[in-house]
Computed example of a mutant assay.
Amino acid sequence: MKNIHFKIYTAITELPIEWDNVSVANHFLQTPYLSVLEKSASVNMQCFFIGIFQNNELIGTSLAQYIDLNKLESFGERDTCFKTLFRNFMLKNFASHVVFMGNNMITGQNSYTFSKDIGFKNISETMMQCSQALIQYFKKKKIKIHLVSFKDFYAVCATKLQQFEFKNLYEFHTQPNMIFNLQPDWKSKDDYVASFTKKYRDQYKRARKKSSAITLKELSLTEVVVLENTLYSLYYYVAKNAPFNTFFLSKNHFSTFKKQCGNRFRVFGYFLHDKLIGFHTLLLNGKVLETYFLGYDEQHQKENMLYLNMLYNMTEFGIENQFEKIIFGRTALEIKSSIGAKPVYMSGFLFHTNPIINRFIGNIFPKLEPETSWNKRNPFK
């Protein structure tokens, strides 16, 4: 295709009026969600909205995020080994200014959407040109971008992109995305549980019995606003104890999300004696259910098998509301496989703006990734 060009926007109010029509295939590139990022981005994040045009017609939309790791108080405090200390040193000194072409806050192929097929050659060229434009944008602000990462592509797309402008970029694979393809004949939780082997049916019964004193309730916008501080503290505990973070949500993130997206964003609270001890959130993206951030009180989590019960509740919501699949993301791989999710490996691509470091990025990058070992489970007959 000819006459493809792009424009980078820094505010939702600047976007073309046809933006949401072009982004109709992905809620995460529509203005309600992008407004959430604009109004409640992490303190170390700035978002850019990219319109892709053919002549004067908007045919594609994309998202980029700048992350300043110098503003992050912690990369994650669960692990304190030498490798973690080395990773933190390297990130602070050689990779603290990062541009993500895509969305670093969610897992999945959400980098771009198009209203017509422009081919992977055009896509790769446009994405590379956008990254260079952002590098120059920050250079004018006296900020040197260290790393550029093109985030989350399924295998077919990754292979296609590598045939063109991505061919000289370093391809990396982090932890797999845990995806649960729901069976069409499951109409209720009873159908789901009946498909388990005895071992996992017993696990389900044990988890449900452990949480019998807990009340699950979907929270309205008013309730999310009232409980905002508690929601954030529960989220922050889990996030801070993760093996690795590049951002922390802002304190008004959940209420902003609920205000902007309404029933596309669902918040479920777990109450013990009227006290909020945990929550999980879901994003409704067409026929795909996306799990989002959650939080819990560690003491009650262990005693009530809270996290496992959250996974069961998310799955049952997906079945009862006839979603085709659930995106569970990259953490807690083994326990997610125990409820039926399967690993799907995705590719990312990156380059370092320092040519010497970039030459050895294939040796350096694997040392920055947290090690993960896990056993794949199959709960079904």
Rank of each mutant, 00 (worst) to 15 (best):
K336E: 04
Y232C: 01
S195L: 07
C130W: 04
N378C: 05
Q183N: 12
N309D: 02
F257N: 08
E57I: 10
Q163G: 08
E165T: 15
F365G: 12
D297M: 08
L58T: 09
S212I: 00
T159P: 08
K139M: 08
K92T: 07
Y170N: 12
D190Y: 03
L283C: 07
L308T: 04
Y204T: 05
A95S: 10
K39D: 11
T315Y: 03
K251I: 11
T372H: 15
I357K: 01
Q109S: 05
N26E: 01
F180S: 13
L306S: 07
K83W: 09
S188M: 02
L227A: 08
K83E: 11
S42D: 06
K325W: 14
L219Q: 11
A242R: 04
F265R: 00
T80G: 09
F94A: 12
N252D: 09
H352Y: 12
V288K: 00
S35G: 04
K198N: 11
N229M: 02
A64I: 00
H300Y: 12
L216M: 12
C81E: 09
K160E: 14
E334Y: 05
K39N: 15
M178T: 08
F48C: 06
T159W: 06
E334G: 14
I327T: 05
V22K: 01
K141D: 12
T174A: 13
W19N: 06
A155E: 14
L234D: 04
P370I: 00
H27D: 08
K240R: 09
M310V: 04
K258C: 09
L69S: 06
M305Q: 14
Q183D: 09
D274M: 02
K217Y: 03
T84R: 10
I335C: 03
L333D: 03
W374D: 05
N56F: 04
I67P: 02
Q109N: 11
W374G: 05
F257I: 12
L308N: 04
V225C: 02
D152W: 00
C157I: 01
S35N: 08
L147Q: 14
D202F: 00
V225N: 14
N378L: 03
K199D: 11
E171T: 03
L58M: 05
F138P: 03
Q54F: 01
V238S: 15
G295C: 06
K121V: 00
I356N: 02
G119K: 04
G286A: 01
Y296I: 02
K209T: 07
L221V: 04
